[in-house]
Simulated scan of single mutants.
Amino acid sequence: MKILYFAWLRERLDRAEEEIELPPGVTTVGELIAHLRTRDEVTDAAFERPHLIRAALDTELVEHDAPLGSARTLALFPPMTGG
């Protein structure tokens, strides 16, 4: 699955995207975020408040309990303000 990072997530992780193979048992957006946090201290810190992170599966906004299913892309981004 391709994961795209936006705004301060991209800055904190020092990457805009990555390809990962989903680990066994990871079936939802929230589970994938939890898995990403286990990889290293930088990623853990970037996702320290997972409830703030918005997600889109193949360009459709979803909640963290959404199943990953056969989605090819997951976009993760912090809340944005308009103006």
Score class of each variant (00 low, 15 high):
9 L>C: 04
6 F>N: 03
13 L>F: 04
13 L>M: 08
34 A>L: 13
43 T>Q: 12
22 L>F: 01
18 E>I: 03
26 V>D: 12
6 F>W: 14
13 L>V: 01
36 L>T: 08
30 G>I: 08
29 V>E: 09
22 L>C: 03
34 A>R: 13
8 W>N: 13
32 L>M: 11
4 L>R: 10
12 R>N: 12
37 R>P: 00
23 P>Y: 02
10 R>P: 00
39 R>C: 13
26 V>E: 08
19 E>G: 01
22 L>E: 03
29 V>C: 12
8 W>S: 12
22 L>G: 06
32 L>R: 08
29 V>K: 12
15 R>M: 15
18 E>W: 03
3 I>A: 08
20 I>A: 07
16 A>W: 02
3 I>N: 04
3 I>T: 02
28 T>N: 10
43 T>S: 12
12 R>T: 09
10 R>A: 13
27 T>W: 02
4 L>P: 00
11 E>A: 10
35 H>K: 07
9 L>A: 02
20 I>N: 04
25 G>N: 07
16 A>M: 07
5 Y>C: 08
27 T>R: 14
18 E>G: 07
31 E>N: 06
21 E>P: 00
30 G>V: 07
18 E>V: 06
28 T>S: 15
17 E>I: 02
15 R>T: 14
14 D>A: 14
42 V>L: 10
24 P>D: 14
5 Y>E: 08
28 T>I: 08
28 T>L: 05
7 A>M: 02
21 E>Y: 00
40 D>H: 08
14 D>C: 06
9 L>Q: 06
9 L>E: 06
9 L>P: 00
24 P>L: 07
16 A>C: 08
11 E>L: 03
20 I>R: 03
32 L>G: 05
12 R>S: 11
13 L>E: 08
12 R>Y: 00
